[in-house]
Design a protein around this nucleic acid. Structure first.
Lengths: 235, 235
DNA sequence: CTCCCGTGAACCAATTTTGAGCCAATTTTC
DNA sequence: GAAAATTGGCTCAAAATTGGTTCACGGGAG
């Protein structure tokens, strides 16, 4: 009890759980710490530095190991894999720094194509799911709910594309867009008026999909994304 | 409803009830609070922060749970559903199962665009690097060396595109293509004759880049990728 | 009066954290 | 080369954290 009270009132020494430590470590790695020899401090040192038990640090480091950020050797230590720029982990880490402008460019490349695929490949049930997401997004009142169903609308179109890789790329983009800087940006650019515009543009996309008009779907999606880009980047 | 309105506007009684707390929490979530690790404070903390009983907070959080804003785990805590911090790794893991057909489809979407960007954006030095890779690939005798410089040729074109995200997506594709099943497939489809064809097709792409002909570069790249697809998938 | 809601408290169950100890692989020291 | 120190791998029980549940009480609304 007392312990807990201290925790929540002393901002300097917030107790970190394994997950938080993993995040902190990732951050420090991406900031270039321990890059000179690629070796992290021993677990026992990290434990005392973070003020937690070694077991807790072990769990945190295990998370880094799981996503390939790090490899461990008994008796030698824990080493960054990020030194190898071709590694999956390093690639993903670099992706987290994607600028909104770059991403919007790629979205304008991929999403019209996805919509086009969807128009020809989607099953009736899949299209229904798209329509459902559209309906909820239009009906939603607060910004987080709208955001969620807006994203879902786009995602379900990708799900219709019958290309799993494309679907996963979109997943990646969605995750990136849910992170800090993007979130701020979306929040700033949101307005009731814009929500209404997005809804009507989604409607055009949906109509084209239902009409199996692949070119129309592609065009409508591109139009929509240009609107989004204008709103987001203020161009 | 009248009930709550009166209570929350009487100056002497600024107490919040469950509904109001739910709204307040939603607002704070939408403002990006707790986004870094996706975890909300314990109910006991929120209770003392809002100055209400835990039961009341529980009811408020239950409302968030009902609209899917949040999920709860005994012993772990309450988590936002919006920010999926660890699903990045899962997404990449799923990508490892990408089929050659799916990937070729996406390559035909992205690479012509990259070539087009490169034709307009590349610096002379970058184009030189592309030419260098092309030269080494053409001169190489064994299949692994050719594979490497072939991949490097494509990668350097992406590097010219001035879109870091696009570059990283290609990196991802390259890593995937270097894994087991792909390697077998490439080995099977390789032949001296095909190597020569690839070289001449690369030459056309390179010429278009050097001529700053973005449409020509895009077309040449698409032609090349169709050849690759035919060879790889036997269509 | 009855019903609903908030309060405060206690207890339960799932999970995490702790702290300690020992082992095995590797490096460092002598 | 042998001994000592370092470091990750592993186990275990106790304590702490946290959501889940119930109960008794009180006040205001219908």
């Amino acid at each position: 009890m007392v312990h807990y009270w201290i925790r929540s009132t002393l901002p300097n020494m917030p107790k970190l759980v394994a997950n938080d430590i993993a995040i902190a470590l990732k951050k420090r790695i991406s900031l270039g710490e321990w890059l000179e020899n690629g070796r992290m401090p021993p677990e026992r040192d990290l434990a005392s530095e973070f003020g937690v038990a070694r077991n807790t640090v072990r769990r945190a480091v295990s998370m880094l190991e799981d996503d390939g950020t790090v490899v461990r050797h008994v008796g030698r230590g824990t080493f960054l894999t990020a030194g190898n720029p071709d590694s999956m982990a390093a690639t993903v880490a670099r992706m987290e720094g994607t600028s909104p402008a770059d991403m919007m460019e790629i979205r304008q490349l991929l999403e019209p194509a996805a919509a086009s695929f969807a128009a020809t490949n989607a099953s009736a049930g899949e299209l229904n799911a798209v329509r459902e997401a559209h309906k909820i997004a239009c009906a939603s009142q607060d910004m987080p709910t709208f955001e969620h169903w807006d994203a879902e609308f786009h995602h379900r179109i990708f799900a219709c594309s019958r290309n799993d890789f494309l679907k996963e790329i979109h997943n990646l983009m969605r995750i990136l867009r849910n992170q800090r800087p993007w979130f701020e940006m979306k929040k700033r650019s949101f307005s009731e008026e814009r929500r209404a515009i997005y809804c009507s543009e989604h409607q055009v996309v949906l109509d084209a999909l239902l009409a199996r008009d692949s070119e129309g779907a592609s065009d409508a999606m591109l139009t929509h994304l240009r609107t989004v880009e204008r709103n987001l980047l203020g161009r």
